[in-house]
């Protein structure tokens, strides 16, 4: 049961417009990060990435609300609702994270700094968004 719901949520998230923007942004980020290797560029791109994730979620807001409302209406428990929201949001972070990871392989000295900032920011943001939607 959970597997089916996870897959449905994941497929639904991938098919949304906001997710398409994120994939395009990730590709361009990767190219940019490979071309201009400096801490400043990394941090600026990180900031832009977070904005991009927020923008993508806002652009898909109607869809995610409809998705969660329908599940709630037909009797999904809180745990399932939380899980579907998380699955809806996480691929957006993964997409950008993959772009960063590949780019960082060529600049290992910046890896600890950027990676830790990215993970903390992503976690805080996803918690805020999930909490906001649940309320």
């Amino acid at each position: 049961m959970l597997r089916e719901i996870v897959l449905k949520s994941f497929r639904y998230s991938l098919s949304r417009t906001g997710m398409h923007y994120i994939i395009i942004f990730s590709i361009t980020s990767y190219i940019y990060l490979c071309m201009y290797r400096s801490v400043l560029v990394f941090i600026v791109m990180l900031f832009l990435s977070i904005l991009m994730v927020v923008a993508s979620i806002l652009s898909d807001r109607r869809d995610v609300i409809q998705f969660i409302s329908v599940f709630h209406l037909v009797g999904a428990r809180r745990k399932i609702l939380f899980m579907t929201i998380t699955i809806f949001i996480l691929p957006r972070f993964f997409s950008i994270s993959i772009a960063y990871s590949i780019a960082m392989i060529s600049s290992p000295s910046m890896l600890p700094l950027i990676f830790s900032i990215h993970i903390i920011a992503a976690l805080i943001l996803s918690l805020i968004i999930v909490k906001g939607i649940m309320l």
Binding site: I5, K8, Q66, S69, V70, A76
Partner: peptide, 18 residues
């Protein structure tokens, strides 16, 4: 209370998945 992007089959399937 339907998901517009889901097919008729998928919409009806939701409560059964739960």
């Amino acid at each position: 209370g339907l998901i517009d992007e889901f097919t008729v089959y998928e919409n009806i399937e939701i409560p059964l998945l739960l």
